[in-house]
Computed example of a mutant assay.
Amino acid sequence: MTTSRQNGSLYTNIQGAIATLEFGHPASNSFPSELLARFTKELHVISKNDAISVIVLKSEGERAFCAGASFDELVAITNLEEGKKFFAGFANVINAMRTCGKLIVGRVQGKTVGGGVGLAAACDYVLATEHASIKLSELTIGIGPFVIEPAVSRKIGLAATAELTLDATNWKNAYWAKEKGLYAKVFETIKELDEEVDLFAHKLASYNPQAIAEMKKVLWQNTSNWDELLLERAKISGELVLSDFTKKALAKFSKK
């Protein structure tokens, strides 16, 4: 079932030590600012829940995993403050995923673009289907994946991030993403994916929660500057989105 709500949906289902966090939006599971804010808040709540040690992050439906930020909101930006605030949405989510004391398992069932690639990169372990191609198309509209770059580069390295970013019109398939380290395993079907996600989450949930929390810190070492860094990056994007190049590019996309 996919949501028809304009601001999208977010559901948390807790079973034992596993919290499943599912987001959805009628526009290919993209994120309006309100949904990003709710998502950030929910991660902070779950982080404080001592009964939970694992989060499974998934999106609605069987098609796109996440189309990134809301296009309608992007087009509506008129000043630097609005631009900074808009791009800070993904910065806040990535930082909440980074500082959350629980291991986050991503379930990526389909294509993911822009901020969605950042979400996958900010998970601690990602399982995907072979339909889970990725693309960073930001340069085509005159901006860049500045906010998510630290998360993506941390996972796949700078060379692969450059390849993904600069080849902005082409999709990289799920096996490329696995080879580079974004995905741990790739499955042929959603059924196989769901079976493995369930099995893996339960395995993690059976481990010592203290060990899990300490391991999380180790995995994210040397990222304590991201609170400032990602907001600085949001400012860069906020400035670029006001450029003539981007305004013209967005106008062309809006007419399509």
Rank of each mutant, 00 (worst) to 15 (best):
M1H: 12
M1L: 10
T2F: 12
T3H: 06
G8A: 01
L10M: 05
I18M: 09
T20H: 04
P26I: 00
P26V: 00
P26D: 02
S30F: 07
S30A: 06
F31G: 00
L35F: 08
L36S: 13
L36V: 07
A37Q: 08
F39V: 02
F39M: 07
K41H: 14
L43V: 01
K48S: 15
N49T: 10
S53E: 05
V54D: 02
V56A: 01
G61P: 04
G61K: 00
A64I: 03
A64H: 11
C66W: 01
C66F: 03
A69S: 11
S70C: 15
S70W: 00
F71N: 02
D72K: 10
V75N: 06
A76D: 09
G83L: 03
G83H: 03
G83C: 08
K84N: 14
F87T: 00
F90K: 10
I94Y: 03
C100Y: 01
K102M: 08
G106M: 03
T112G: 07
L119S: 03
A122I: 06
A122Q: 05
V126A: 01
L127V: 02
L127M: 08
L127P: 04
E130Y: 09
I134F: 07
K135G: 05
S137R: 09
T140M: 14
P145C: 11
F146I: 04
V147P: 04
I148M: 15
P150M: 00
I156L: 01
A160Q: 07
A160V: 06
A162L: 11
A162Q: 12
D167A: 14
A168F: 09
A168Q: 09
N170Q: 13
N170T: 13
W171T: 07
N173P: 07
A177Q: 02
K178F: 04
K178C: 02
G181A: 00
L182G: 02
L182Q: 04
V186R: 00
E188S: 13
T189M: 04
E192D: 13
L193V: 03
E195W: 06
E196K: 05
E196S: 07
V197A: 00
D198E: 14
L199A: 13
L199H: 13
K203G: 11
L204F: 04
P209D: 01
V218D: 14
W220F: 12
Q221E: 14
T223E: 08
S224G: 09
L230G: 03
L230S: 10
S243Y: 04
F245Y: 14
T246N: 09
K247S: 08
L250F: 07
F253D: 14
S254I: 11
